[in-house]
Simulated scan of single mutants.
Amino acid sequence: MEHSEPDTRTLERGLGEYVGAVAAALGVPAESMTVEISDTATAYLGLPRRWLDRPDHDVMLVWSERRGWALAVETDPADAPVLIARYGGGDLVPPPGAVARFVADAAAGHHTGQERPDPAAALTRKSLAERLMPYRRHPG
Rank of each mutant, 00 (worst) to 15 (best):
G14C: 04
P139M: 08
E74C: 13
H138P: 00
M33I: 11
S4M: 15
A78P: 00
L128V: 01
D53W: 04
Y18W: 08
S32A: 15
G140S: 13
P117Y: 08
G68S: 07
H110R: 14
V28R: 01
T75V: 07
P117V: 14
W69D: 03
E12H: 07
D91A: 13
R101Y: 07
G88K: 05
A100Q: 12
G88D: 12
G20R: 06
M133K: 14
D91M: 05
G88P: 05
T40M: 02
D7L: 04
R49C: 10
S127H: 06
D39A: 13
P48G: 13
G109H: 08
G140A: 07
Q114E: 09
A70S: 14
E74Y: 08
H3V: 09
A85E: 04
R54Q: 09
E2L: 15
A21R: 06
L26T: 11
V19D: 00
H138W: 07
L47K: 15
V73D: 05
V22G: 01
P77I: 10
G46I: 02
L61F: 12
R9H: 12
H57P: 00
W51Y: 12
G89W: 01
R137K: 13
P119D: 05
A85S: 13
H111C: 06
Y44K: 14
E17F: 00
P29S: 09
E130F: 01
L15A: 05
A41P: 07
T8E: 14
T124D: 09
W51D: 11
R101T: 06
A80T: 12
R9D: 11
A23G: 06
A41Y: 03
G14A: 07
H110N: 06
D79M: 11
A70M: 14
H111A: 11
P134Y: 05
M1R: 15
L123Q: 13
V103Q: 01
A129P: 01
E130L: 11
G90I: 10
R125G: 04
D58S: 15
T40P: 00
P6W: 01
V62C: 12
T10Q: 10
P96Y: 05
T8D: 12
T112A: 08
A108V: 03
D7G: 05
T42I: 02
D91C: 09
L132F: 07
E65A: 13
T124L: 13
S38Y: 04
E115F: 04
G14P: 00
S4C: 10
V35W: 00
I37M: 01
L52Y: 06
A80H: 05
D118G: 09
P117S: 15
D118C: 12
V93W: 02
T124C: 07
A80N: 07
A107N: 11
A106R: 05
A121M: 11
